[in-house]
């Protein structure tokens, strides 16, 4: 993002406490667990392995959260206290990091994760219509998971494929010039591979 080219550096130190993002549009909110299931022993082992592997890094909190989500698809509630203890942080510190960043999920996603770019370049070539199509055809609005648990749809703001929009990322894979028909084909192929 551009810096302070126009001389808009803050005029003083603000002593306000950072507060949670207020009234962020619903689509960007990740589904929160309603009654979070306790982590399984395997999940706890994955958490502890990520911590053991990465805790000696400077500024390890973010790398550890990434590693846990890469292993489990989300960050279980139990991770917070374990990371805090390992890094000598408060649980509030870790909770703050976990909830600040859009990437991290506190609940398991659907079997497939579709991230739809909602930024200007993709809007210019029809990403709004694409998101509407996903909601209507595949049962998951942006920010939601389909009732059958097959698909979680998330908003993403720029995949760096701005000359070939609309762009989506399906299960980590970038796809360009995605219209409704191409999206249906991509999702059908992904779901077909489940069987």
């Amino acid at each position: 993002m551009p810096g302070n080219a126009l001389g808009v550096v803050g005029k003083g130190v603000f002593l306000l406490q950072p507060t949670p993002r207020n009234s962020a549009p619903e689509e960007r909110m990740h589904p929160r667990p309603t009654a979070a299931a306790a982590a399984t022993p395997e999940q706890l082992a994955a958490i502890d392995a990520a911590i053991a592997r990465l805790q000696s890094l400077p500024g390890a909190c973010l790398p550890i959260l990434h590693a846990i989500q890469a292993a489990l698809g989300f960050v279980p509630a139990e991770a917070t206290a374990r990371i805090a203890a390992a890094l000598n942080l408060s649980r509030a510190d870790v909770h703050g990091v976990l909830t600040y960043y859009h990437d991290f999920r506190s609940a398991p996603p659907g079997r497939h994760v579709l991230k739809v770019c909602r930024a200007e370049a993709c809007q210019a070539v029809g990403s709004d219509a694409l998101a509407a199509h996903v909601a209507a055809r595949h049962g998951a609005a942006v920010g939601a998971t389909s009732a059958d648990g097959a698909l979680t749809v998330e908003a993403i703001y720029c995949l760096g494929n701005c000359a070939l929009g609309p762009s989506v990322q399906l299960d980590g894979r970038l796809c360009g010039r995605v219209d409704a028909a191409r999206l249906d084909a991509l999702l059908a192929a992904a779901k077909g591979a489940d069987a």
């Binding site: 993002m1 400077p58 500024g59 890094l87 510190d93 990091v97 859009h102 993403i156 703001y157």
Partner: peptide, 22 residues
Amino acid sequence: LGAGSYVCGEETAMLESLEGKR
């Protein structure tokens, strides 16, 4: 790696994030 926050492209927010913080 960042984690999906646009404002982390601002240099001081980026430094905070590199340090593992919000």
